[in-house]
Design a protein around this nucleic acid. Sequence first.
DNA 1: ATGAAAGCGCTAACAT
DNA 2: ATGTTAGCGCTTTCAT
Lengths: 331, 331
Amino acid sequence: MTVTIYDVAREANVSMATVSRVVNGNPNVKPTTRKKVLATIEQLGYRPNAVARGLASKKTTTVGAIIPDISSIFFSELARGIEDIATMYKYNVILSNSDQNKDKELTLINTMLEKQVDGILFMGGTITEDHINQFKTANVPVVLAATYDDTKEMASVNIDYEEAAYEATKHLIEKEPNQPAFVTGSEETSINRYKFNGYKRALEEANISFNESLVVEGDYSYDSGIEAVKQIIELQEKPSSIFVVSDEMALGVIHGAQDMGYKVPEDFQVFGFNNTRLATMIRPTLSTVVQPMYDIGAVAMRLLTKYMNKEEVAEKNVVLPHRIEIRDSTL
Amino acid sequence: MTVTIYDVAREANVSMATVSRVVNGNPNVKPTTRKKVLATIEQLGYRPNAVARGLASKKTTTVGAIIPDISSIFFSELARGIEDIATMYKYNVILSNSDQNKDKELTLINTMLEKQVDGILFMGGTITEDHINQFKTANVPVVLAATYDDTKEMASVNIDYEEAAYEATKHLIEKEPNQPAFVTGSEETSINRYKFNGYKRALEEANISFNESLVVEGDYSYDSGIEAVKQIIELQEKPSSIFVVSDEMALGVIHGAQDMGYKVPEDFQVFGFNNTRLATMIRPTLSTVVQPMYDIGAVAMRLLTKYMNKEEVAEKNVVLPHRIEIRDSTL
DNA sequence: ATGAAAGCGCTAACAT
DNA sequence: ATGTTAGCGCTTTCAT
């Protein structure tokens, strides 16, 4: 039924070893026999079985990628970076969504390890000891992308979130020297803590006292941005600017404000984070922190290939450059 | 080094067959021995090798998904539907981007077949004979998602694009009885032809003569929407409404018009397609055709599981319901 | 340059 | 209920 290497060997009057050699491009084959083998491969319609190869060679040329939500504009961009580099290095990727749910994450890691992936790319909110232990049961490399492990034990690719948030906040304060509201995500997520620290540092540096009630927690969605700005507008002392940790939520903030008759940036400056495509798909266009999502994915995958090939790695915790892009949602 | 089923068998004083049975939940195992085996599995840290299992059983519980571009807001939503149902049925998915490039598509199909996927989900613009031939070399089922095969040979999940476009156009015409501009994608893509047919039918039904110059081709991107509207505005006889085949491009059309001082919907009504999250992330909110992307992915994956399980399939060309959502970008 | 043979870790009859 | 035994299709020494 299915054509195997053995069938090809028989038809071509060679041994399976020889067929294996030509399939794998081993130079130790006489051109004539190579040609003969290639011809019968074509004729028989032979297709190598990667599963059998994987069992014999202990390499699957497949990596696993665990991602919170592929339908998010942020992560899908990251995934594209991963995929492109994976393709470039001849790897396939098994992609799975975790919804940042710890149990799912742990299960997924296990499933991927069962499938004998050659490496794992992990994106998530929080890295716990359980995660690290689970990873240690693997004898394959793991790289975190846009994900922080406070212990720095694991290889990772990120930007400097603290500094980026600091710069954004500073920009806001320079225009209007009072405390911007801070619309963030769960404080369980390390990255949000770093962003908060940067925000706080900018305040302290400008001698602006910190008012807890200007910190609002959302879930990164557009709707939660609308909710957040409603809450902010009801405050006794309204801020004159709002720093939002994701672009999508920032769009919600802008539209929420506009829908209630406020003007951006005149009544509220709004600063986003990530520079997703959304940032220019709104009026006023969104000032935001440029986080190179695609590059983070690409670099993370590249780093993983180095580990998989047992190459030397100069820096296991890669920090990619970020910058601030000022558009029309700020003064 | 790695613990195998054989190690577990030896330690637990049973045969590998018994270990295999407990691992696979076969009921023909005495509770006591099951317990014993489970204990030594735990103790030894045994993890089943899915590659070996795949080779022996000829099933990998992995499916392949070929998608034009995972970073697109449209396809990433579709992918999420696929992933969720795949997870529900215990499949993993190898996801790869094709950029709608025929060679890449053909290569990807081949690679996935080499990896012995149990089925393939395909999303793309054009299905050629080469595609169909390539699929035929597979002895695994294939399902098309949001993709048309004019021969109807292949299983697929879609909506009725012709009818949907007809309804949208009709709505526009009812408000303003003249020809709307039509901003579309490549006419090589069958789906665009169906949409065009629906648009045309609505015109004919209303006895509106068709002017070719009101048809503009874009590439679905925001920027190409901006370009398209620029081109439309330069026309001798400007239309009073614009039907755009993708939401993202429709946002470009709206902002392009607004940036030039026009009002939506007063100067131009704008109608989108897909109802991606973007549709409510703009002011005015976008009237659009609701295409259930997530459901298309989910239903396609479900259909694939049926084929993989050799279940009876009532309808191989599934047409999901669509509807029109009127928001503020139309009168 | 080519071949022979031993696995890789598991499933699936078949036997008991 | 449990064990025995062939493979699954390939890679990889080791010979020649």
